[in-house]
């Protein structure tokens, strides 16, 4: 097209009309190709397919269209609803604790404290350790009678609860372990945010006579807001999707007390209810979209006003 019009205009003036040759970009589009194929085939295609298969009774070999039955079942069966609610609780608890503890740890670890390097390492290391390993270890530590945690509490004269055996506690116990493992990441993100705050602000605040507490609330907290947004979004999505820790520690038990959508998906898959399992996937996807997108917009909009 462009070649045609070019010859047209050039031909009007010049003696020898010359088509303007379009040279290939030095940044070739085929560089996208390997990634696009792998990503498109193994991530996008299944995601799109899940929208269909979630509407079917499915054996992997043939599928029967059953409309919204799977979703109806999800909202009818108490243990499936329980999973849905648990997922949200888990995400809120873990991300909330990670924000608070991560920020406090980061403030502590950027202050003039001794053994800073050691403390940072110790807090961060669990991030790199196998989740299943952590889960198994804490399952043992949280053993109601022989577990170290309750033995420790007993020494202080407290009778520890059945961390993982008490149905109303199990989910929170797993969430605590999640925080134990993940708070290091929140901390380093906050540290990066705090370190990036120019010293001028603290000096200006000092000249204005701010106390340490005022420093924290009026300088540190507002200025490391991007870090807060990151920590919230990251740990919230992570919390909604969590599977391996729950599976390693409780398998969703006792009963369905600590089931999440992700563990339900696996259970239904194991049981051969592929359509239902896939519907679980779509539910989880919807849950993330419904919660995270507005959350992101809310957090980023408030940021814009500052």
């Amino acid at each position: 097209m462009s070649v045609m019009t070019q010859t047209g205009t050039a031909g009007a003036g010049a003696a020898a009309p010359v088509p303007v040759l379009k040279r290939p970009s030095p940044y070739p589009g085929w560089f996208f190709l390997p990634a696009a194929i792998i990503y498109g085939l193994l991530f996008l295609l299944p995601t799109v397919a899940s929208l269909y298969f979630s509407l079917t009774r499915w054996t992997l070999f043939n599928s029967t269209f059953i409309g919204l039955d799977n979703f109806a079942q999800f909202l009818r069966e108490p243990f499936l609803i329980k999973g849905l609610i648990n997922t949200v609780i888990y995400a809120v608890v873990t991300s909330g604790l990670k924000v608070v503890l991560g920020l406090l740890l980061a403030v502590l670890l950027t202050s003039q404290i001794a053994a800073r390097g050691y403390l940072r390492s110790v807090v961060f290391f669990p991030v790199l350790v196998s989740t299943v390993g952590v889960g198994i270890t804490f399952t043992v530590l949280m053993h109601p009678t022989n577990g170290m945690i309750n033995e420790g509490l007993a020494m202080l004269g407290i009778k520890g609860p059945g961390w993982l055996t008490n149905p109303s506690l199990a989910l929170y116990s797993v969430a605590l372990v999640d925080v134990w493992k993940g708070v290091g990441l929140a901390t380093v993100i906050y540290i990066a945010g705090i370190v990036a705050i120019p010293k001028d602000y603290y000096e200006a605040a000092r000249i204005d006579g701010a106390t340490k507490l005022q420093n924290f609330f009026y300088v540190t907290l507002p200025l490391c807001r991007p870090a807060t947004v990151t920590v919230i979004i990251l740990s919230f999505i992570g919390g909604l999707r969590t599977f391996d820790l729950i599976w390693a520690m409780t398998r969703g038990g006792p009963g369905f007390a600590s089931d999440t959508v992700a563990s339900v998906i696996y259970k239904q898959y194991q049981a051969g209810f592929y359509g239902l399992s896939t519907a679980g996937n779509v539910v989880l996807f919807a849950l993330i979209a419904v919660l995270v997108v507005p959350l992101t917009m809310l957090l980023n909009r408030r940021e814009g006003h500052e």
Binding site: L42, W58, R241, Y274, N281
Partner: peptide, 24 residues
């Protein structure tokens, strides 16, 4: 569009069973 797919990849949980179906 590409950036949208990247963000989607960070957020969306993989659709497990359809992926197994595809791998098969």
């Amino acid at each position: 569009l590409i950036e949208f797919f990247i963000l989607a990849g960070l957020m969306i949980p993989p659709a497990v069973v359809p992926t197994i179906w595809l791998l098969q």
